[in-house]
């Protein structure tokens, strides 16, 4: 069974090395300052008791007030996982350091997050749109971009 490390547990380890990186930690999630993302990820990958060698997924969520980027990290060597999140408040030009230098698997996933949310990953060698076409003007998974139902949720049958 893959053990899900709690946010607090990982935060305590991170604070030892990078005291200013952690914003908030609870039983599940670990919130980090966006500038410290790359340093924390490097620590999580290289620390012998973490060994997060596998980047399961990177994704974005638009919470209107801020954009959130969620990293699911897994250690194949130790069979445990952690969820790391960061908030970006600048909707016009959200920026985050790329983790591609640590995990090649970030290449397409960061391009996808850029394509859908407009988050710029600094240090990514080839940050282009990936599923939408070049020259497309919008970031379709942001909440201010309306879908076919104009943001209408399905009618609730109680």
């Amino acid at each position: 069974m893959t053990q899900s490390l709690s946010g607090e547990q990982v935060a305590n380890r991170v604070r030892e090395v990078l005291p200013n990186a952690v914003v908030k930690a609870d039983g599940i999630d670990l919130y980090l300052r966006s500038e410290a993302m790359l340093d924390v990820c490097r620590f999580l990958k290289e620390a012998p008791d973490m060994e997060m060698d596998y980047l399961t997924s990177i994704t974005g969520v638009d919470y209107m007030d801020y954009l959130e980027v969620v990293y699911h990290l897994t250690s194949i060597a130790r069979n445990h996982s952690v969820v790391v999140k960061t908030k970006l408040y600048d909707r016009a030009a959200p920026e985050l350091p790329s983790v591609i230098s640590l995990w090649q698997g970030a290449e397409f996933q960061e391009r996808e997050v850029y394509d859908f949310f407009g988050i710029i990953f600094t240090g990514h060698p080839d940050l282009r749109r990936i599923l939408m076409w070049d020259g497309y003007a919008n970031f379709p998974l942001r909440k201010d971009y309306l879908g076919l139902n104009y943001g209408q949720r399905p009618a609730l049958v109680e």
Binding site: D53, I76, W103, Q104, G105
Partner: peptide
């Protein structure tokens, strides 16, 4: 190593 690193 690359298979793990590339999230295969």
């Amino acid at each position: 190593e690359q298979a793990i690193n590339a999230s295969a």
